[in-house]
């Protein structure tokens, strides 16, 4: 895998009132350090704390009250 300053190996982006998307080269481990089974190139990580399939997002955040962007 080649890397340079303009093109990082992994891109992480937070979405308003939603998850964080991780794209690229990564290894995802759970709280016990066990790899999370996913063969997706891009994953959504829950940051609302309510997902039933944490650490992945399952869309539950859309049921929670939203905070407006400042």
């Amino acid at each position: 895998m080649t890397t340079n300053a303009e093109e990082p190996a992994t891109a992480i982006r937070a979405y308003p009132n939603g998850p964080i998307l991780v794209r690229g080269d990564f290894e995802l481990l759970d709280e016990d350090g066990v790899p999370v089974a996913t063969d997706r190139r891009t994953v959504a990580l829950c940051r609302c704390g309510r997902s039933a399939i944490a650490p992945l997002c399952d869309g539950t955040h859309s049921l929670l009250p939203r905070t407006p962007r400042s």
Binding site: Y15, G18, P19, L21, T38, R40, T42, V43, A44, I53, L56, C57, D58, G59
Partner: peptide, 11 residues
């Protein structure tokens, strides 16, 4: 579709 569309909806 639960896992995939959690990603797709943001994109």
């Amino acid at each position: 579709h639960v896992e995939a569309d959690a990603v797709h909806e943001q994109i």
